[in-house]
């Protein structure tokens, strides 16, 4: 594992840069726990100060320190992405592996559900959820809803791998060794789909964070948990750009761009790691 990471860093500049950005983000998450101000408190600092030595990223019109808001927002946004990715990966693994291995009627039923989820228009559904749930639409609820929407594509991908694994002779060997289906899926087949799971994790995070930001900016979420989208929402509602408080908007937008670039680079290099031909090309061997 260590040598794989070392060689990926050495031969794959995308991975190195992506990893660097990821480490920066993790540092931000750690830093957020040392914030001098509680996240939701307002007017704790003088409002509308431009960036200077004391307030690195200035302060907002609501009297909050932009830097610490950003750190806490990054933590929540990343946590959101990881939460959705984690839950939806579990769903897609269970559905994909089971459908691919079991085949027949199980496969048809699971894929009917899978395809229905795939064609649901996501954005209108999310807005609908907001209007139905109103105040119950909190951070955790949104994680659950997006997880329930974000597994279907990857379940199909995993199913196709599972279908070919089922025909491999070692699967027959496992069956005649008396192993249960659960044991075969978890111990024999899971290692083969893990690279795909890792790669799709990045794409899934990009998707779910993008969704959260879109909803937040429009105000369709719980406005009390600071996230990247929340920051932009409050900045807009105080007309930050018009009143020249540009740093209030620039900080979250910049952070989002960096976050997306990092995830995209990692996802790309993961894809390359999965395909050994391009990996060898890269190594120049």
């Amino acid at each position: 594992m260590f040598t794989i990471v070392r060689d990926l860093i050495r031969y794959n500049i995308e991975f190195a840069v992506g990893l660097f950005i990821l480490l920066l983000l993790i540092a931000a998450v750690v830093l957020s726990f040392f914030s001098p101000y509680p996240a939701a408190d307002i007017y704790v600092v003088p409002p509308d100060l431009p960036p200077d030595a004391e307030f690195w990223l200035g302060t907002t019109s609501r009297g909050q320190d932009t830097f610490w808001q950003l750190m806490i927002g990054l933590r929540n946004t990343l946590g959101f992405g990881v939460g959705v990715a984690f839950l939806s990966r579990i769903l897609s693994l269970v559905v994909g592996l089971t459908a691919g291995y079991a085949g027949g009627r199980t496969d048809r039923v699971l894929m009917a559900i899978n395809d229905s989820v795939m064609v649901i228009p996501q954005f209108p559904i999310l807005v609908l959820f907001y209007f139905v749930l109103k105040d119950d639409m909190n951070w955790l609820m949104l994680v659950l809803i997006l997880s329930a929407l974000g597994w279907a594509y990857d379940a199909r991908l995993i199913r196709s791998i599972a279908m070919s694994l089922r025909t491999r002779p070692f699967t027959t060997q496992s069956v005649y060794s008396g192993m249960s289906m659960r044991k075969i899926l978890v111990e024999e087949h899971l290692p083969y789909v893990m690279p795909v799971v890792f790669a799709t994790t990045m794409n899934n995070m990009i998707w779910s964070i993008g969704m959260e930001i879109t909803l937040s900016v429009l105000g369709f979420t719980d406005v009390d948990t600071p996230t990247m989208g929340q920051m932009i929402y409050w900045a807009n509602s105080h007309s930050a750009l018009i009143s020249g408080i540009w740093w209030w908007v620039a900080a979250p937008v910049g952070a989002i761009v960096i976050l997306f670039i990092g995830l995209f680079l990692l996802s790309m290099s993961m894809n390359e790691y999965i395909d050994p031909r391009s990996r060898l090309n890269r190594m120049g061997v």
């Binding site: 491999r168 002779p169 070692f170 027959t172 060997q173 496992s174 005649y176 060794s177 008396g178 192993m179 111990e187 024999e188 290692p191 083969y192």
Partner: peptide, 25 residues
């Protein structure tokens, strides 16, 4: 099975199939 190189999961130790068979049957 036909191909002994394919008949065992390349990521797993060979003896796991032996022990599983003994434990299960």
């Amino acid at each position: 099975l036909q191909n002994p190189f394919e008949a065992f999961n390349p990521l797993k130790r060979v003896d796991r199939y032996l022990f599983a068979t003994a434990a299960n049957f």
